[in-house]
Amino acid sequence: MNKSCSNCGQPFEPEPGYYFGAMFISYAINTALFITAWVALSIIKPDYSLSLLLSLLGLTVLIFLPFIYRVSRSIWISIFVKYRGEDFPGTS
């Protein structure tokens, strides 16, 4: 991630360890993905094996890891730093 916002200058790492809480958001997102993959596999192939399920979950994690990393950090910072786009010049 960038060090700070290019528009307003808000630092994206206000203090060391700030994004520790984003780990819990990432955990929730991954849990939702795992349940979705498990339900989809149960519908598509009702007689699946454990190795197929674990392979599917591992592949899901690898595919969505970059997305989940950034989204969980963005959600975490948006909880504490409110977006005020109209307060800054050049934004509408």
Rank of each mutant, 00 (worst) to 15 (best):
Leu52Lys: 02
Ile35Phe: 14
Leu54Pro: 02
Ile35His: 01
Tyr48Arg: 11
Val61Phe: 14
Leu52Val: 09
Ala37Ile: 11
Ile35Glu: 11
Val61Ser: 09
Leu59Glu: 09
Leu41Gln: 13
Asp47Ala: 09
Ile63Ala: 07
Leu56Arg: 06
Pro66Asp: 04
Ser49Lys: 03
Ile35Lys: 03
Thr60Glu: 12
Pro46His: 05
Leu54His: 04
Ser55Cys: 07
Ser49Gln: 07
Ile68Tyr: 00
Leu56Gly: 06
Ser42Asp: 14
Ser49Met: 02
Leu33Cys: 14
Thr60Met: 13
Thr36Glu: 02
Leu52Ser: 10
Pro46Trp: 06
Ala37Asn: 05
Leu50Gly: 04
Leu53Cys: 03
Phe67Ile: 14
Val39Lys: 06
Leu53Phe: 12
Asp47Met: 05
Phe67Tyr: 09
Phe67Cys: 03
Gly58Tyr: 08
Leu57Arg: 05
Ala40Gly: 03
Ser55Thr: 15
Leu53Ala: 10
Ser49Cys: 01
Leu57Pro: 06
Pro46Leu: 03
Val61Glu: 09
Leu62Ile: 12
Thr60Lys: 01
Phe64Pro: 01
Ile68Arg: 02
Lys45Phe: 09
Leu56Ser: 10
Lys45Thr: 12
Leu41Phe: 06
Phe64Asp: 01
Leu33Thr: 05
Ile68Gly: 00
Ile63Arg: 01
Lys45Ala: 05
Ile44Trp: 14
Ala40Glu: 06
Leu56Asp: 08
Pro46Tyr: 07
Leu50Tyr: 04
Ile68Val: 15
Ser51Leu: 12
Trp38Ile: 10
Phe34Val: 14
Leu52Arg: 08
Gly58Asn: 09
Phe34Gln: 06
Trp38His: 08
Leu59Lys: 10
Phe67Gly: 00
Ile63Thr: 09
Pro66Val: 04
Asp47Pro: 00
Phe64Cys: 09
Val39Cys: 02
Leu52Asn: 02
Ile43Met: 11
Leu54Gln: 06
Thr60Val: 15
Ser42Lys: 05
Ser51Arg: 05
Thr60Asp: 12
Ile68Met: 00
Leu65His: 11
Ser51Gly: 00
Lys45Glu: 13
Thr60Phe: 04
Val39Phe: 10
Gly58Trp: 07
Thr36Asn: 03
Asp47Trp: 03
Pro46Asn: 07
Tyr48Phe: 15
Ser49Leu: 07
Leu54Glu: 03
Pro66Gln: 02
Ile44Thr: 08
Leu65Pro: 00
Leu56Val: 15
Pro66Phe: 02
Leu56Ala: 14
Ser55Gly: 15
Tyr48His: 13
